[in-house]
Design a protein around this nucleic acid. Sequence first.
DNA 1: CTGGGGAAGGGGCCC
DNA 2: GGGGCCCCTTCCCCA
Length: 475
Amino acid sequence: MDMVADLGANRLYRAPGESSHQQPQRWFNTADITVAHQSNLLKQLNQQRRQELFCDCSVLVEGQLFRAHRNVLFASSGYFRMLLSQGPDGLSESVNATFDVFSPETFTVILDFIYSGQLDLSSHNVIEVMSAASYLQMNNVINYCKNFIKSSLDISVKDEDSDRCLSLSETCSFTSGAGEETSEQQQQQGPCSISPPPALWTRDNSRSQSGFLGKDPNQEVSASALTNPDSPVNELSTETEDLQDPQDPLYTLPGSERRRGKGGTKRRAPNSTRSNQHEDLDIQGARTQKAEKAEELYATLPPIVGVIGHFTKDSNPIMRFKCPFCTHTVKRKADLKRHLRCHTGERPYPCQACNKRFTRLEHLRSHFETIHQARKLVCRKCKCQVTEETGHVVCEGTRRYRMCTACIQEVGCDNIPMDSLDGPNEEPALLLGVDGEEEGDAKRSWMVTDDDDLAEDSGADLIIQQVDDSDEELQ
DNA sequence: CTGGGGAAGGGGCCC
DNA sequence: GGGGCCCCTTCCCCA
């Protein structure tokens, strides 16, 4: 045999009929052969699907019937893999699947991708395609969607002024190898490493908006959620952090890359230079655009996908709501809305004292009481319990904490830089310049007060203000 | 290097 | 649906 099908290696083989001692007349590059063969095979399968030849699987999406090949679906989707391998019908009979959790238009995009490697994404459908891909456990599609979003954000921020960007409103299509990649490929690919090369993007403004928009968020579903722990989707729970800019104070990195604590908050030098001001403007501009993009994401977010988590003893299904960005499900829509903030980076609750932002009001309140109001009745130095009478409040910048009388005497008031004590009647937020706490810090790094109830006497009340980022940053 | 503590973030669930 | 509480985990700082 002169030719060996070694599809994985890029090798040269003689054409059939040529002996080894003959001068080769033609050489074949197997990489080219492989690509051509795969392309041809895919075209054939796609033709068969369109002609409904050998289709042994019916997929009903909101009443619209799609015919496909079971083996192709099996190879492309973790969901179908599980469905087809666990189905009661076995492998000999045709299989039906019904979906109401995404639209026929969305499934068309998915199915076209499966059979052609072309993923038609637009700003209108990317979220719902990603949601559907998450449901169908198609890791590669999820990655493409995330990169589409990421690229759109990056391009828009960088190039908006020069109008060279590919607008989000335009439709793009990714070209990819068909089918699901291996896990190894996916790891190599990673959400950051497969930014779609712009050259591969083709504009197609003809595609209409599709999908979830306008659908009933409380719609029932007929397909149960698959909670396969081995599902590749489960590996993606934190990957949407790609949507966030690590340099952006508005955004935090979910999971392990979160910035927390004192060391995590970037502090500006007291003397802000002109270049710093320029940087501030740049950061604010980027922050504004990020916030706008988050708003855009919210605007295009599909109604929450309901899935059936499990059944009660009475065999009543318990509906859960699935996050379109990860595999997390919650019982209540409100909880999902709260959860979504960890993906969008939205932090609507700024601390008036230190400008730090929080995703939840209770976190802001807790932060404010702990950091700025010295509500903890514990001596910071010796950790002993103090009362409001014995616990003197020490102010360090906008930070306030309590020390017991003994520790105050031990340290000595002389060693604590005393301020003019006109501060207690000012609330921390008022001590600050617009740029943050450092101005206040420089002026009054330490203060000791005998206020027993700082909240009342100092006026350090928590002012809850929900800030519209875009408006705030433009000021 | 390690363990403890503080602060922050997130989920579940009750009101 | 929002607010709030409780609990747990994670991260960072510091001794």
